[in-house]
Amino acid sequence: MVNPSQDAPAQAKNKKVLIENLEIKYGDTVALTDVNLDIEANEIYGIIGPANSGKTSFLNCINRMDDMRPNMSTTGRVWFNGIDVTNWRNLYSLRRQIGVVFPLPVGLPLTVYNNVALAPQLSGINKKADLDEIVERCLRRAALWDEVKDRLDSLGSLLSGGQQQRLTIARALSQEPDLLMLDEFSIAVDPVTTMRIEDVLKELKKEMTIILVTNLVQQAQRLADRTAFFLNGRMVEMGKTEDLFAGKVQHQETLDYIEGRFG
C-alpha cells in the first residue's frame, strides 16, 4: 500500500475517490469537462446520462486506461484512496485494485475456471487449492456457481450472455477489488439476470465501493446512494439519489432526463 501523497487535499484522504477539475480530450475534441465530485467508501455511486455524454471516458480515467489510448489526454486530478492516480507510475498495481465490468460481456477466450483464476494467477497465486477456493467463492458471489459448477472447463464464451456478464463480475471480484466499476452492465442482459446482479451488488457494497454507470435511470434509483447526471460532456448535477428522484433538482434537464422527457 502506498501512503497518501503529501500534497493530497484534506478531503481526498477521507474519500475513496475525489475528482478535481477533470477534463478529458480526444485529440482536440473535449469529451468531458469540469467534473468535480467525490465518492465515499462503501457507497454505490450512480452515473446516468445519454450516450456520448462522457461516462465511459470518466471511468477510463480512474483506472488510467487512458494510458492505452494515444489520442486521449486528461487534465485535472483524480485521487484514489488519497493518492493521485494521474501521476501513478505502476499502473498495473492501480488496475489490480479496481475491478471493471464492461457493457458487453468480454468472456476471455479461456475456460470458465481460468477466466476467474486469471487475476489471482497474475498476482502470483498458483496453488491449485487456493485457486479452486477463489474461483468457487467468486462464482458464488456473482450468483453463477450453481449454473456453471459442472462446466468449469468449458469455454467461457459458450455461456449465455447473462451468464457471461456474471462471469465478468466474478472475474472482477477475483481481483478482490477495492473499487468496482460497472459500465452499463445490463445492456446485453435479460431483466431477470439484471435483477439478480443488482442483488449481488447490494451485497458487495458492504465490502467495496461501487461506481455504477447505467443506461437505466430506474437502476440508479434502485441501487445508488448518490447519483450524478452527465450530459454533453458535463456533469450537470449530482446529489442524493432519493432527492433527485423526488424532484429536488437544481437543473430542469436532470428532471427531464429522469422522467424520460428527453430529446
Binding site: 486506461m65 492505452m68 498495473y92 485494485q97 476471455l108 487475476a119 498476482s123 472475474r171
Partner: peptide, 11 residues
C-alpha cells in the same frame, strides 16, 4: 476487447 479486459485487470 480481450486486451482491454485483461489490461483493466492489471495484467
Amino acid at each position: 476487447g480481450f486486451r482491454e479486459a485483461a489490461e483493466a485487470m492489471g495484467a
